[in-house]
């Protein structure tokens, strides 16, 4: 089966800056794919390379097996939802949504009908006559989605589409985007720096750093078995154990990750590892504790670990000495990058 999007040794250099460096990646058809990374990691450049706003310095980009490296954006069957939505301020909502159809020469009545339909799908029926400036952030985002989807693209690109929304709306849109993607069956490629967003929405996640992909995998894989230290740090949640601490936990003396929920609290007496609770953060369904393992536990990194205490269990107060227990196999060694 051909991939929807393929990167074959793609590089994009801006002068001496290697925004994207010798990248290979395949995104399957119908997949909800997230590109996750800090700013400047190359994820947005990758999206712009797919859209055609950038041309690769080296390598090839293929859409459904066809080389599109030299094609301008208007020749590619992909559409983009921009970070700032990029709605045309001089057109009303309906004309914004119908823009692609107008360019494609679809007759006026037909494009009106399809634009209305797309607005209906985005729960914005009857908003066609308004100006983009009269809409809220969430509404603008839906218009931008409608404007992209009405063209029935083979791939939909989303550049930090939820970045400008407030928290509640962002969570709501996460669910809606996921549902929408299942419904339309189009390949979604989604750029974000928010690991929660990437993990909760995507079928697969690529974690970017310095123009390279550190790991590609399902959210579970990336979260539970980070391949490198960078992934573990950036995706967060997991404890990153330095070689010394990993050895203390019975692993090889190499960098390792350990999920906070894999750790259990017990009495300090007889425990292999003990520590002092230094901070507690109530998360609703659980409480996240920071346990200090004591100076000398690790010469080269943090010497505390996070422990997740599920709701209903007693939570020791800061200052309490506790013992730690964990399942064998909870420790995952990883590369030191």
């Amino acid at each position: 089966m051909t991939s929807a999007v393929s990167f074959r040794g793609v590089s994009r250099h801006f002068g001496s800056v290697r925004a994207v460096d010798a990248l290979d990646l395949d995104i399957a058809e119908g997949e909800f794919f997230a590109m996750l990374g800090p700013s400047g990691s190359g994820k947005t450049t990758c999206l712009r390379l797919i859209a055609g706003f950038e041309t690769p310095t080296a390598g090839r980009i293929e859409l459904f097996g066809e080389d599109v490296s030299g094609l301008p954006p208007y020749r590619r069957a992909v559409n983009t939802v921009f970070q700032d939505y990029a709605l045309f301020p001089h057109l009303n909502v309906l004309d914004n949504v119908a823009y692609g159809l107008m360019i494609a020469g679809v007759p006026k009545a037909e494009r009106r009908r399809r634009a209305e339909e797309a607005l209906g799908m985005m729960a914005l029926p009857g908003y066609g006559g308004r100006r983009p400036s009269e809409l809220s952030g969430g509404q603008r985002q839906r218009v931008a989605l409608a404007r992209a989807l009405v063209n029935r693209p083979r791939v939909l690109l989303l550049d930090e589409p939820l970045g400008a929304l407030d928290l509640k709306l962002r969570e709501q849109m996460q669910d809606e985007l996921k549902t929408l993607q299942r419904k339309v069956g189009i390949t979604f490629v989604f750029v974000t720096h928010d690991q929660g967003e990437a993990l909760s929405m995507a079928d697969r996640v690529a974690v970017f750093n310095d123009g390279r992909i550190q790991q590609v995998g399902t959210p579970e894989e990336v979260y539970a078995r980070p391949r490198t230290r960078f992934v573990a740090d950036f995706v967060g949640g997991s404890n990153v154990l330095s070689p010394g601490v990993a050895a203390l936990f019975g692993g090889r003396p190499a960098w390792a990750s350990l999920r906070p929920e894999a750790l259990r609290l017990g009495p300090p007496e007889g425990a292999r590892i003990t520590g002092v609770v230094t901070a507690a953060r109530y998360l609703g369904a659980a409480t996240r504790l920071v346990v200090d393992l004591g100076a000398g536990a690790s010469p080269e990194g943090r010497n505390d670990v996070a422990v997740l205490v599920p709701g209903g269990h007693p939570v020791p107060a800061p200052g309490t000495r506790v013992g730690l227990a964990w399942d064998a196999g909870a420790l995952h060694p990883m590369a030191a990058e």
Binding site: P73, Y74, N79, Q83, A86, F88, Y99, A148
Partner: peptide, 27 residues
């Protein structure tokens, strides 16, 4: 005029000439 509007026009299938006529000139 934000650069993203010009990119959005191209993204939606407009050639540079069409982008000039429908986006840049009106703005």
């Amino acid at each position: 005029v934000p650069g993203s509007l010009i990119e959005a026009s191209g993204d939606l299938g407009a050639t540079p000439g069409q982008t000039f006529r429908h986006v840049i000139w009106p703005l």
